[in-house]
């Protein structure tokens, strides 16, 4: 690429800047945030692609020499001059990027150093390598500017606040859509196979460590679910409520921030089905005897 072409490329890039200002304000802002947020990713990906390309080229450069050498051995000569003439602009750029001295001219750039038989050549630094180096330095300075001397880059605390704000909005939207979902006042036990099976899986994963795999209770940990005694009330409504709000002072987690209402619904229903299953090693009963008949909740059972 000669100087003229470089100038043209530069001018056309600059020319695009005003075009950007012509775009509608919000779209412009959105685009700008996106670029800022992802600039590093974009550059990173660019660098990866470039690096693979460069590595590929390194091998190609080596193989190209080899080909010439083999052809030469068979008497076919690839005259460097011919080559240049036939070459595309791309190929010329490529040769320039490497600035390799042909192997047969190597003698001319031998530095005459000899260390235990190791000699050194005076090849130029591959220009593409030099420019990559410059580029990383420029990006480095730009990076420091963006994150420490301008208002563009966010500090990690700011990034965090922004992410939390966004999540809050999303959650509100969702809750709004779900406003008439199950809660402890309207919950009714489920009995379908699928829900109970799902609940069983959640139970094994999240509850069994304290309440036992079969709900038999664990000494020093959670109470038994298979008897008729409940510390915080039996029946689907009370159980739902205990799951949701937990009993933090006794070690029972409040699951409301970690579990969807629908899952707590399934779990409460599942726990009801454990009564009377008589697993081995049950924990002794705790709390009060819960008699469903005396309770409106029994209708739900």
């Amino acid at each position: 690429m000669d100087i003229n072409k470089k100038v043209i490329a530069l001018v056309s890039c600059l020319g695009m800047a005003p075009a950007l200002w012509a775009v509608e304000k919000t779209a412009q802002e959105a685009a700008w945030t996106w670029v800022v947020n992802n600039i590093v990713v974009v550059i990173g990906l660019g660098v990866i692609l470039f690096a693979f390309y460069a590595l590929w080229n390194t091998f190609e450069a080596i193989i190209y020499d080899k080909r010439r050498q083999v052809l030469a051995e068979q008497g076919i000569e690839l005259k460097p001059k011919e080559y240049v003439q036939e070459d595309s602009v791309f190929k010329k750029m490529y040769d320039k990027a490497w600035s390799l001295v042909p192997i047969d001219k190597e003698g001319e750039i031998d530095l005459g150093h000899d260390y235990d038989g190791i000699r050194e050549l005076d090849n130029r630094l591959p220009p593409w390598w030099v420019y990559t180096f410059y580029l990383t330095i420029v990006i480095g300075i730009g990076y420091l500017y963006v994150y420490h001397y301008s208002d563009i880059g966010l500090s990690q605390q700011e990034e965090y606040s922004e992410a939390m704000e966004e999540a809050k909005v999303q959650k509100l939207k969702f809750l709004f859509a779900q406003s008439n979902a199950v809660n402890e006042t309207n919950v009714v036990a489920l009995s379908d196979e699928k829900s109970l099976q799902e609940a069983h899986e959640i139970f094994s994963m999240k509850c069994a460590s304290c309440h036992g795999k079969q709900g038999q209770g664990l000494k020093g940990l959670g109470p038994n679910f298979t008897d008729q005694y409940w510390k915080h009330g039996g029946g689907v409504k009370n159980i739902f409520s205990t799951i949701k709000y937990g009993v933090p002072e006794k070690g029972m987690i409040a699951w409301k921030s970690q579990m969807q209402a629908s899952d707590m619904h399934k779990l409460a229903s599942y726990i009801l089905t454990l009564e009377g299953t008589n697993p081995p090693n049950p924990k002794e009963p705790e709390g009060d005897l819960w008699v469903p008949e005396n309770n409106t909740d029994s209708e739900a059972n």
Binding site: E106, H113, R119, E120, L121, D122, N123, P126
Partner: peptide
């Protein structure tokens, strides 16, 4: 083989 580039080193 000779080392490719002393300058690069």
């Amino acid at each position: 083989r000779p080392v490719y580039s002393y300058k690069l080193s």
